[in-house]
Amino acid sequence: MEKTMNLTLKVWRQTSANAKGHFETYKVENISGDSSFLEMMDILSEQLVEAGKEPVAFDHDCREGICGMCSMTINGIPHGPEKATTTCQLHMRHFHDGQTITIEPFRAKPFPVLKDLMVDRSAFDRIIQSGGFITARAGSGVDANAIPIPKKTADYAMDAAACIGCGACVAACPNASAMLFTGAKVSHMNSLPQGKAEKHRRALAMVTTMDGEGFGGCTNIGECEAACPKSISLDMIAQLNRDYATAQVKNFFQPVS
């Protein structure tokens, strides 16, 4: 027989953005170790609905660790205790019978709570809109092999581009800094030859937007890297700092627009 577990859940409930939230305690039973954390939340939801109560609202979509939609802070850690794992890919076999699990939304000022465990992460989109792109109109690309890109460069760009934009880095950071997210995006594009033309403009614009959205500064604590479900490295922050510093100097002498 498969081993199942009974759990106590302390879940953050908040009816809307402006309402005051609080923890509620629920019990779920016979949870299979093969269930994902979100499947466990589904079971809780069905239980609540059957009792005529509103289910817990949480964000999710792909359930395979790639869309970046799921969030939740589980026992104090964004996406829970397993390293390099999103909440949807966290499986219940990592918990034990009788355990109490605390479940909260990602907490950070720039990510206001919408309801229960759902937060608004649109500030990330606005950072990208300000400069996180390479300007290349459809149809204007030259032959894809015209510019050879060393494998090492392509691999580095890919390491950076693996970011899923979930916001765990911000939720993990005591300053609610978005440097890992922004650093990853800037490193991805600035390291590629196609991205060089807009390199300085990109770094300046994205950092300005990031600051304007109310994300805090980076004080090199490293919680972001530890919480990142895609193991994005702190090197990306170093690269952003370098690119941003150069851009500022250039901008001082001749505005990079």
């Binding site: 390479i134 149809g139 690309g141 050879p148 590629l192």
Partner: peptide, 22 residues
């Protein structure tokens, strides 16, 4: 073929060989 050109221009980090080609 145009799609690949467009994606590379947009910065899609496709896998590459050691010579730098796709």
């Amino acid at each position: 073929a145009d799609i690949i050109d467009q994606c590379v221009a947009n910065g899609v980090p496709f896998a590459r060989e050691y010579g730098g080609l796709l």
